[in-house]
Amino acid sequence: MDSVNPDHPPLRVTPATPHVWMFWGTALWGLLIFVAMFVGQIGAIVLLVAERGLPVNLASLQLVGREPQALALSVTMGLPATLAAVWLAIRIKQASFVDYLALHWPAWRQLLFGAVGLILLVLAWETMSRALGREATPGFMADLLKSGRDKGAAMVLLFAFSVAAPMSEEVLARGFLYRGWSASFLRVPGAILLSSLVWTVVHLQYDMYFLAEVFTIGLWFGYMRYRANSLWLTTVLHALNNLTAVVLTMWLGV
């Protein structure tokens, strides 16, 4: 037999490399993806500063970064940087980009269910905010959006916050992070919880009250990502949520 013949040793079957990054691989790549998003965003501001002949320092970055058009460009440029980093991470695993991120269009009933749940959740937070005498939108965001409207930057801000930001954040949180962590020891519940926490950390410019709202919305998005197995679903829900907030704040002053 070949198994005892020294001239014909038994074949060794090499285990296939998993096509999904597990817990630590997902965490480390997630950090790199976040850094790429940040570099893309800050890089846009640096280019604007250099283009104007200003010194590239913190003061100049802050000055230009406060402008509505510059901020819109910054948020938008975070998207290609994020997609490139995610593509590289998935490419190394020789996995399908579409399947890894669950880029499948959901059933309409799933979209409707997710939208109704999101509306109820937002209304609950809105009611609580009014009961506590709090503003429904963070003051600095309201000022930014109204300033952008008055300076002719309404459409670029609308695109940045309703298209680019939701896509970047969903690809990172409910796309890459959820995919790897749900396949690890965390399983689905832990992946939903931890990816929602990371998504909340991305919004540290808000106070604790708004961070709590972001976290609960993240949990709902995570559940819908699991239920429908579709990143497009959470991206559309995220975009609708941001679009509504931008329109209400920018044009209706709510």
Score class of each variant (00 low, 15 high):
S195C: 04
H8Y: 13
Q205N: 10
L61A: 05
G43P: 10
L63R: 06
W105C: 06
W199E: 05
L118E: 07
W220Q: 05
A124H: 01
F140D: 09
V122R: 08
L118D: 04
R225M: 15
A245P: 04
F159N: 09
H238E: 09
Y178L: 11
E169M: 03
V98H: 11
S230T: 09
V64T: 02
M224H: 08
R109T: 13
L11T: 15
A72S: 11
L219G: 04
E213H: 07
I42Q: 12
H203L: 07
R12Y: 07
N241F: 12
G53N: 03
T137A: 08
A142G: 01
G65M: 04
L132D: 10
G114M: 11
F34Y: 12
V4P: 01
G53D: 04
F210D: 05
L79T: 10
A72Q: 06
R149Q: 13
L63I: 00
A131W: 14
T234K: 06
F34H: 07
W220Y: 11
W251F: 15
Q69T: 07
I45F: 09
L240V: 11
D7A: 10
Y209W: 15
P10W: 05
V20Q: 12
A107M: 09
A50P: 00
A102G: 01
N242P: 00
A142M: 03
V201T: 05
H104Y: 14
L47W: 04
V35L: 15
D2I: 03
A164K: 01
R174N: 06
E213C: 02
F210G: 02
M1A: 11
L112H: 00
W232F: 14
E51Y: 08
M37N: 10
S184C: 11
A245W: 01
G114V: 10
R179N: 05
A115K: 00
T26S: 14
M77Q: 03
L71H: 09
F185G: 09
V163G: 11
P166H: 07
R130F: 08
S168R: 06
A85W: 05
H104P: 06
V247M: 15
S129D: 14
A153K: 02
G222H: 13
H238Q: 08
A160Y: 06
L240I: 08
L28C: 12
A84P: 01
A72V: 03
Q62C: 02
A95W: 11
I119W: 13
